[in-house]
Write a protein that binds this DNA or RNA. Structure first.
Lengths: 185, 185
DNA sequence: GTAGTTAGGAACTGATTGGTTTCTAATTTA
DNA sequence: TAAATTAGAAACCAATCAGTTCCTAACTAC
């Protein structure tokens, strides 16, 4: 006894993810957000509550889509060396030329939003585990502690890379660097 | 034949630097900014023009004060190993528990402000040169190209470290990692 | 058909935004 | 003393902000 929802919640959140990813939280106003979600104000507030809630859901979708796809690619890689598998993380694709949503959320939103802070940490941990998995399958000579350290360093390199990318800095030869870091030179 | 300015421009910009550093550009409104600069609206607009101009000046002051102090410390360090000299960069002091202003500006402002983008790149380059200086005095066995690569990696590690720090993540043993990265283990 | 829920659109709220103007009083140099 | 410039406070501006309300129309299940 009710008219069914016409828009697709997942698709709407996809649009929200994209616009928050590109513009950040504060810089995205309601009209921007509604346009990206293809929703009107009424439907928006009835379905999601408020802007902050949608931002969190957008983070969740980034986790489910982008991060998961990233992890799957790391896992599926069959190159014999770890560097080759990790390189895509250090190639700014056209689709992601606005940086990494996790990094953006950490810097802009996390400091005064504990829920977002925790979510970004969880996502960073997932990435780290993915990197660790790549190392475990290959550089078997390393001690587990050393391997964890390397994964953490690559994760930090990744975030630093993403942050600097947002200033438009030209990117350099990361393959050689990662290779040397992992002793695969 | 004119009443002299009573407030200290440098001190006012210092206050602006602190509040922008802590809160970011968008999250800092005029009342916040005026309070931090200890200025009234009238004096503010007459002396500086607008909020955006003050943000840029705040970045410049960060460069002159914080970055310069950082570089001076790197240069003055007399420890025999590079790691010991670089470690302070990876220790979040109380004074800077809101991260690194350069990193914040890169992520929040640089994407749609070319002047800020260029300034952050210049500041990052200064940091890199400082790191490079530390390496040049010590690890003389390295080739120049390898040394530049290492400096760039440490710079990226630093920015990644700062970004992740904003999510409140507990910090781990960076001394061991840097030491191993530089072959000083 | 009717109850219940949705969509879409528009109007509206109260608060806040960055920025301007206008006033008086103070302080300087010539 | 007179011209010039500042400080400080307040009122004011138009625009924008997130969020609410109200309306009609559409749709589904009972």
């Amino acid at each position: 006894m009710a008219r069914p929802r016409e828009f697709d919640i997942a698709k709407a959140l996809d649009g929200a993810m994209r616009v928050f990813w590109r513009q950040g939280y504060k810089a995205t106003n309601l009209p921007d957000l509604l346009c990206a979600m293809k929703l009107t104000r009424g439907s928006f507030y009835k379905a999601f509550g408020d802007k902050g809630a949608v931002y969190y859901h957008a983070l969740e979708r980034y986790d489910e889509e982008v991060v998961s796809a990233n992890l799957a690619a790391l896992k599926a890689c069959d190159a014999p060396d770890a560097t080759t598998c990790l390189m895509p993380m250090f190639t700014l694709s056209d689709a992601a030329d606005h940086g990494c949503f996790i990094c953006n959320a950490m810097v802009e939103v996390a400091p005064d939003n504990p829920k977002v802070a925790q979510k970004t940490q969880e996502m960073a941990d997932r990435l780290k585990q993915g990197i660790l998995g790549v190392l475990e399958v290959r550089d078997v000579g390393l001690s587990p502690a050393h391997r964890t350290d390397l994964a953490e360093m690559i994760l930090h390199l990744y975030f630093g890379f993403q942050a600097m990318g947002k200033s438009g800095r030209a990117q350099d030869d990361w393959e050689g660097r990662i290779r040397r870091l992992l002793g695969e030179g």
